[in-house]
Structure formats: C-alpha cells, structure tokens
Computed example of a mutant assay.
Amino acid sequence: MNKRFLRYAARVTVVFLSFIAFYFLAAFILSRITVNGKPVPSNDVSIYIISNGIHTDIAVPATHMLKDWTKEIKYNHTVHADSTYNYLAFGWGDEKFYLETPEFSDLKLSTGLRAITGLSTSAMHTSYYHTPVEDQHCKKIIISKKQYQQLINYITASFLTDEKGQFINIGSEIHYDDTDAFYKAKGSYSIFKTCNTWANSALKSCDQKACLWTIFDTPILNKYQ
C-alpha cells in the first residue's frame, strides 16, 4: 500500500510540476508576441500605463468630452482627491487580495490560494493623479477619440453596478492612500486572468500595442520601451 501510494504521489507531483513549467513557459512565449504592433498615430487623448513593479494600472483623463469619470468615481469616495486631479487610474484584481493585502508583507497563504482558484469576487481599484510622471514604470501613449471610446467601454464593462446602473463603492473606510477608492467588479481572478491580463486586454480593446497574453507587468511595459 505504501509503495502504491508513493508511486501515485510521485505521479501527481510530476504532473503538477509539469503544469507549472508549461504555464510559465506559455506565459514567457505568449507575452513576447505583440498584437497591434503598429497602432494608428493620434494626438487626441493621452493615457498612461502605470506599474508598481508587480501590478499594472491604466490611467485616463478624469474628465473628458467623451467621459466624466468623476460622476461615478466620486471625489468623496476618496480621502482627499478633488478637481485638481487630472487623471484617474484603474486596476482590476481579486477583491480579498486587494482588501487584505495593502502591502505584500501582509500576504496570507489562504488569500493567495483563494485568489488563484478563480472562485472569489473581484474589485476595481481606482486612484486619482494630478498628472502621472513618465519614467521606467510609467509610459504615456496618445490614442484617438474613437480608441478612447473603446477603452471607456472596456473599463465600464468591468464594473458591477447596482439597480440604478451606478458603480458599487466597497467602503469609504477602505483606502491605500488619500486619493483612491475600491469598487465591485465583474469576473474572477485566476492563474489565467490576473490584474496584468486585465490591463493588457484594456490596451487591446483600444487597438494599442499589447502582449498576446501575459500575467506579468514587465512584458506590457517592454512594448513601449
């Protein structure tokens, strides 16, 4: 019985390790394949790709003729944001992970395992900026009004809404800093759909350079070096 169990355990281990190896190999290869490699030049709307080294946000004008985000991402949902903040960044992710892990030092094994199962709920983290500063972790791109409308549609469709069609604020007491707020979102985080997968798809939605598929932030930024 013990030998049979050991053989079974060894096979399961081999299958698991093979899956992990294939997963990361696929992530490596697919992230290096570029889609929309030659976007149409435009001078209409400036947006930003922002990474904190792990997680990618997409920042757009807080107010614009096509969309006034402040009507839904209200200043009073933050601690101190106001009309002097010109940009609003969006980042999608696992709700429990967002709310229970403001710093990676706060990460619990149970939170991480629950996030990758694809069984938990998701949230949208929004952050106001005066104007993002371009550097190695922040890239500015300029898109057309048509492309921006496509991006607006993608971001809007990622939010859960109440019976009145309004975004659902998770709680006025939940913040990472003075200019952010959390909202209920659609979908579930998993090993196949991460925060960076969402941001990469946001770029695809408005016909900008993106990875065929990625779970990491660096391949996205590398498209704009």
Rank of each mutant, 00 (worst) to 15 (best):
A81W: 00
Y98E: 05
D82M: 11
K67R: 14
T131V: 14
H55L: 02
H64F: 05
D135P: 01
Y48R: 04
F104W: 13
T78I: 01
Y75F: 15
D68H: 05
G93L: 09
F97N: 09
A123Y: 10
I50Q: 00
T63N: 12
H55W: 02
N86K: 15
F90L: 05
D94W: 06
L113V: 15
F90K: 04
D135K: 03
S105M: 11
T63G: 05
Y87K: 09
G112M: 12
T56I: 03
G118E: 09
V133A: 09
I47T: 01
A59I: 01
L99M: 15
K96C: 05
A123G: 08
A62G: 14
V45Q: 00
T78R: 00
Y98T: 05
Q136S: 15
L99K: 14
I54H: 07
G118H: 06
T63A: 11
G93P: 06
L113H: 07
G93W: 10
H80I: 11
F104A: 08
H137Q: 13
Y75E: 05
K71V: 07
D82P: 08
M124I: 14
H64V: 05
Y85G: 02
F104Y: 14
Y85A: 04
N76P: 04
D82K: 15
R114V: 11
I116C: 05
W69M: 01
L66W: 05
H137I: 07
I58F: 04
A123P: 10
I73E: 02
N76T: 14
A59S: 07
D106R: 06
F97Y: 15
G91V: 01
M65H: 09
S83L: 09
I54S: 13
S110I: 12
E95N: 14
D82C: 12
E72R: 10
Y75A: 06
Y87D: 10
A123V: 07
E103A: 13
Y128A: 03
P132E: 04
H77R: 06
D68R: 03
Y85V: 02
C138E: 08
E100F: 13
I47Y: 02
S51E: 00
F104V: 15
S51N: 00
T56L: 02
D94H: 06
A81S: 04
E95F: 10
V45K: 00
G53L: 02
I58S: 04
H137Y: 14
G112S: 10
G118V: 08
G91S: 13
H125D: 09
I50S: 00
E72N: 09
W92K: 10
W92T: 08
I49K: 01
S83I: 11
P132W: 04
Y85R: 13
